[in-house]
Nucleic acid binder design. Structure first.
Lengths: 158, 158
DNA sequence: TTTACTGCAAATATTTTGCAATATC
DNA sequence: GATATTGCAAAATATTTGCAGTAAA
């Protein structure tokens, strides 16, 4: 699907979710959704807030928090906590078929795709639990930090 | 392995880690490790701090934070962020072969085991990344919240 | 004896909340 | 017109940090 169509589609999804819950279609909600889908990468609330400001759209931090929660509820974005204290998010469209490699040294996050594993996880059923999605995090050391670690092991500890 | 032997084993592991890094073997570190392994369930730092107090062992919150970080570094405990702002931890012994079902409504967390999936994930290799462990979180609604949700959908939204 | 570690309190970071003003339905 | 939502600021929550005193090596 083309990016433009994706935006239309997710806006429509938000609209129908708001309808179904009797919530209001405020311009802020659609502006934030649009910004997130244009970004198309991980973000935290503060970064999103700043990007909105810079792009000339004035919203309060509280509204960004509220809206991000709302978008998580209707599964248009996915929440992550990669190990730092701050929550991270990403758009949900095409997001549920990848998982994340997290470097425990530099906190860098990269994405990995695996169709088979994804299908397996998507189709898994649980007792007394209605699954809507999953997050798989692989922890370890990235290329750069493995090298750093190796050279540190040669230094003397006192 | 029996619980007593597990405790001996992880204490020895901590000891050798501290040696290898030139860090000190303080009684606090071993007391905290012991408490965690005796608990044998998920915990957050504040709960652990309170349990230590109640059990009569006085440590500062700062030391609990420091020690928990240390234990994560040497892979004796595993860090989780289940979606709330607070980090959760659990002992690593026998912990890496299960994953978590998280109810997005009531935040309740339950454990699931799947040998095959675990083996698959443990043995997976990545390009330019040295994996040490993984966390798999399945999000959805638990039994109780599915029912609550169902009855709410029958109420009128205005 | 050296300095890593602890405890305490203050500082920081992130998120939530209360309330008056505003805008959607 | 009723009330959900916004913006702002203050509060709450979770974690980190600085520093003086203590204790491990």
């Amino acid at each position: 699907m083309e990016e433009n169509n994706i935006l239309e589609s997710v806006s429509a999804q938000l609209s129908s979710y708001l309808n179904s819950k009797g919530l209001r279609k405020t311009p802020e909600r659609f502006a934030i959704l649009e910004q997130i889908y244009n970004l198309n990468r991980h973000f935290d609330v503060d970064t999103l807030y700043e990007i909105m400001q810079e792009s000339g759209y004035r919203v309060s931090r509280a509204t960004v928090y509220n809206t991000v929660d709302l978008l998580v509820e209707c599964h248009l974005i996915v929440k992550h906590q990669f190990g730092t204290n701050m929550a991270h998010y990403e758009r949900a469209f095409n997001a549920d078929n990848h998982f994340h490699l997290i470097c425990t040294n530099c906190n860098n996050v990269t994405e990995v795709k695996d169709e088979d594993l994804n299908n397996q996880l998507q189709n898994k059923k649980y007792k007394d639990f209605d699954a809507t999605g999953y997050n798989l995090y692989i922890y370890g050391l990235c290329h750069k930090c493995v090298e750093k670690d190796r050279s540190n092991d040669n230094t003397i500890h006192n």
